[in-house]
């Protein structure tokens, strides 16, 4: 059970949070201009990395804010947490 440092509320138990999948996948600004393949790339394709992964998390049972997390999936160490819109820490 992780201890997650919500950037708005501080350290809280994992059960207050919801994982939201891979981070930094921006919704295309002009979807109609994309081919089926390009749209499918956005819609379906997600990485499943063993190691450092950038993820979205939501403090669902708290402030309801979304934020980003860098997590090592091999040992579940949380490397960094930063707000939406902020630059990811350099790798």
């Amino acid at each position: 059970m992780f201890l997650i440092n919500c950037p708005y509320c501080g350290e809280r138990d994992q059960q207050e949070f919801k994982a939201g999948g891979e981070a930094h996948i921006e919704r295309p600004k002009q979807p109609t201009e994309l081919s089926d393949d390009e749209w499918a790339e956005y819609l379906f394709m997600r990485k499943n990395i063993k190691g450092i992964q950038f993820e979205r998390w939501n403090h669902a049972h708290g402030c309801r804010k979304w934020f980003n997390m860098v997590r090592d999936t091999s040992n579940d160490q949380i490397k960094a947490i930063y707000k939406m819109g902020e630059k990811p820490p350099s790798q």
Partner: peptide, 13 residues
């Protein structure tokens, strides 16, 4: 509500 919040906060801030 969760989905709408998601779009508001992350895609259309």
């Amino acid at each position: 509500l969760g989905k709408l919040e998601d779009y508001l906060q992350t895609e259309w801030p």
